[in-house]
């Protein structure tokens, strides 16, 4: 059976891991390559690097990180953050990434998804959606995506945010997931901004709505705090994969713990 995937996410700034793994005796806990290798040994099914480097000058640093990682670990590698053009995608993929994750750039220019899928195949294109429950205040369109609102719809329950979750878009999260998939997204990485960092569990309701709306794998992100949270995202939320950062980095659980828990509950995982 196809296994549910457990994915650690590493934030990388100018070539260094932010909030690095701080419980193991790594020679250099800030080194993304060493952190990725650690998680490979721990049984991760995939590694996600999120490049949070602000300055464009440091883009080549990320390419080097990706290349060095792909040379040493034999797991699928997804890279997101700062990818704005087909050339950006090509550089990441030719340096060893298996998939690229698009977020703000895809909202600004959905054609990028179309072009990327055509060039590299839908399996390479992940669309990352950061969304939060609407307050009911009625969001204005802040980034001038009037045309896209026509395609996607205004937020019903969940609104898409961009720029690292800071900027509301006036777009409905479920509508955007559908639209992005129709453009060629092969996977959705769905982060709940409300839940992120709270350790109070994934946003199951949002997850359910997105997983039932699209026919591509959905990775749940934001909120993992207990082993049961992973289980609920998979069984109640129908997530195909679960992503977490801090619970793994801070050593609250090992990836193995999550897999054992899921396996005991009858979920198919790679053990």
């Amino acid at each position: 059976m196809l296994a549910k995937r457990i994915i650690p996410c590493l934030d990388v700034n100018a070539g260094r891991v932010v909030k690095g793994i701080n419980f193991v005796n790594l020679t250099d806990a800030g080194d993304p390559v060493e952190s990725a290798r650690f998680y490979e040994r721990e049984g991760a099914d995939e590694i996600v690097f999120l490049d949070i480097t602000a300055s464009v000058d440091n883009r080549s640093t990320m390419l080097d990180v990706v290349r060095r990682t792909a040379e040493t670990i034999f797991l699928p590698l997804t890279v997101g953050g700062g990818i704005r053009t087909v050339d950006d995608m090509r550089r990441m993929l030719s340096n060893g990434a298996d998939k690229v994750s698009l977020n703000t750039a895809a909202v600004r220019h959905p054609g990028l998804i179309v072009e990327g899928a055509k060039e590299f195949g839908v399996q390479c294109i992940v669309v990352a959606i950061d969304a939060r429950r609407t307050t009911g205040a009625g969001s204005e369109t802040k980034i001038g995506e009037a045309a896209l609102v026509g395609e996607v719809g205004a937020p019903e329950e969940y609104e898409v945010y961009v720029n690292g979750g800071r900027t509301p878009t006036g777009l409905d999260a479920v509508g955007w997931a559908k639209y992005a998939t129709s453009c060629g997204a092969g996977e959705i990485l769905l982060t709940s901004i409300d839940k992120d960092g709270t350790n109070s569990g994934y946003d199951i309701d949002m997850l359910k709505k997105i997983t039932s709306a699209v026919n591509v794998p959905v990775i749940a992100s934001g909120g993992a705090g207990t082993l049961d949270h992973f289980y609920r995202a998979i069984t109640d939320g129908n997530a195909d994969a679960v992503l977490a950062a801090s619970v793994f980095h801070f050593g609250k659980f090992k990836i193995r713990d999550v897999k054992n828990y899921l396996s005991e509950k009858g979920v198919s995982v790679r053990v």
């Binding site: 296994a3 995937r5 996977e187 026919n215 195909d240 790679r270």
Partner: peptide, 10 residues
């Protein structure tokens, strides 16, 4: 079933 078949299988 979702296509592509993507992920870890036995």
């Amino acid at each position: 079933l979702k296509v592509p078949h993507m992920g870890w299988n036995q």
